[in-house]
Computed example of a mutant assay.
Amino acid sequence: MRTGAAAGHTGYFHEAIRYDSDEHLLAVVLPFLLGGVAAGEPTMVAFGERNAQLVRAALPAGCPVTFLEGGDVYARPVGAIRSYRNLLADHAGAGAGQIRIVGELSAAQFGATWDAWARYESAINHAYDEFPLWSMCAYDERTTPPAVLADVDRTHPRTALPHDRHVPSPQYVSPEEFLLQDRPAVTDPIEHAPPVADLFDPRPLEARAAVRTAAASAGDGLAGRPVDELVLSVSEIVTNAYVHGLPPVRMRIWAGRGRMVVSVEDGGPGPRNPFAGLLPTNSTTSAGLGLWIAHQSCSHITLHRAATGYTVRMTAGPPYTG
């Protein structure tokens, strides 16, 4: 049975907390957590160290709230979706009528990689909707960039406020619309130099060989598994471009110390499924399978639709955060 503001709601009840002080944050989070505990619901916190300690200190001694390691949960968007779906399935399978989670991203994720996290915030409205989840995502208005806050309003159907107020977001956009919009990526500084390889209509074998050759010029810190995963991702995306896209296909590689960026562009419109790459697919012929593999393997990935075609941009090694 659903309780609190989510009573009577079916599926995912997704809210943002836009707070401007510690007192504001606690005024929303504490009633949320204590309400879950009182109702016997699985109740969890996925905050960074500072805010986790703030909440721990404010909760009654021995309060059975579970604290997740926020940094581990939010390492990569697709990994977060996979981990949370497994967690939610376990609790729902054990009979939970509602699950409560409050979480936050780190400030480092509001820079050059924010596009991927904005897509995450939008996609989970669909990805978690089969579960009786009520979650709140906390954003500090004092430190979060205005553009990020604008996306928060567009990806969260509601905002949670002190005094048990829960208001709809007039700016909310469905994931089916949000995820198909083109969002320009922040250029990685290594892309300011000429690419170390610029291939037109490469076959997968040629693409894989080019990545391995370029990795040798990327300097210390980029070898082994990150390179192997990038090779796999590039092979999948180049294959996708031929099977699901339109000619011509262009692949470019940039390499810097410990990091590589590879873009693959074709003349097609890109996948029609807005969740391609973000959610697993059981189909072996779907464009979403290659994108899913790339999202799992690369440290950062961006997708771009333009009048000239569709571009997938993959990063191996620690991504540029801006």
Score class of each variant (00 low, 15 high):
Arg85Ile: 10
Asn86Gln: 13
Asn86Cys: 09
Asn86Trp: 01
Asn86Ser: 11
Leu87Tyr: 08
Leu87Arg: 14
Leu88Phe: 15
Leu88Ser: 04
Leu88Asn: 05
Ala89His: 09
Ala89Asp: 11
Ala89Val: 04
Ala89Glu: 12
Asp90Ile: 12
Asp90Cys: 05
Asp90Pro: 05
His91Asp: 07
His91Pro: 01
His91Arg: 10
His91Tyr: 15
Ala92Tyr: 00
Gly93Leu: 11
Gly93Val: 09
Gly93Gln: 03
Ala94Phe: 04
Ala94Gly: 01
Gly95Glu: 00
Gly95Asn: 02
Ala96Phe: 04
Ala96Val: 01
Ala96Thr: 00
Ala96Gln: 01
Gly97Trp: 05
Gln98Lys: 01
Ile99Arg: 06
Ile99Met: 03
Ile99Phe: 08
Arg100Asn: 09
Arg100Ile: 03
Arg100Gln: 01
Ile101Asn: 14
Val102Ser: 15
Gly103Arg: 05
Gly103Phe: 11
Glu104Tyr: 00
Leu105Gly: 08
Leu105Met: 08
Leu105Glu: 05
Ser106Ile: 00
Ala107Thr: 07
Ala107Asn: 10
Ala107Gln: 13
Ala108His: 06
Ala108Ser: 11
Ala108Phe: 02
Gln109Pro: 02
Gln109Ala: 06
Phe110Met: 09
Phe110Ala: 11
Phe110Cys: 10
Phe110Asn: 13
Gly111Glu: 07
Gly111Ile: 06
Ala112Met: 12
Ala112Glu: 06
Ala112Ile: 08
Thr113Asn: 05
Trp114Tyr: 14
Trp114Asp: 03
Trp114Gln: 10
Trp114Ile: 03
Asp115Gln: 15
Ala116Phe: 08
Ala116Arg: 07
Ala118Cys: 10
Arg119Ser: 13
Arg119Ala: 15
Tyr120Arg: 08
Glu121Gly: 06
Glu121His: 13
Glu121Asp: 13
Ser122Val: 02
Ser122Pro: 11
Ala123Phe: 03
Ile124Tyr: 12
Ile124Gln: 12
Asn125Leu: 12
Asn125Val: 09
Asn125Thr: 14
His126Arg: 15
His126Lys: 14
Ala127Asp: 03
Tyr128Lys: 08
Tyr128Ile: 07
Asp129Gln: 12
Asp129Gly: 02
Phe131Trp: 14
Phe131Asp: 06
Phe131Gln: 02
Phe131Lys: 06
Phe131Met: 08
Pro132Phe: 03
Pro132Thr: 02
Leu133Gln: 09
Leu133Thr: 08
Trp134Ala: 03
Trp134Arg: 04
Trp134Lys: 00
Trp134Tyr: 05
Trp134Met: 06
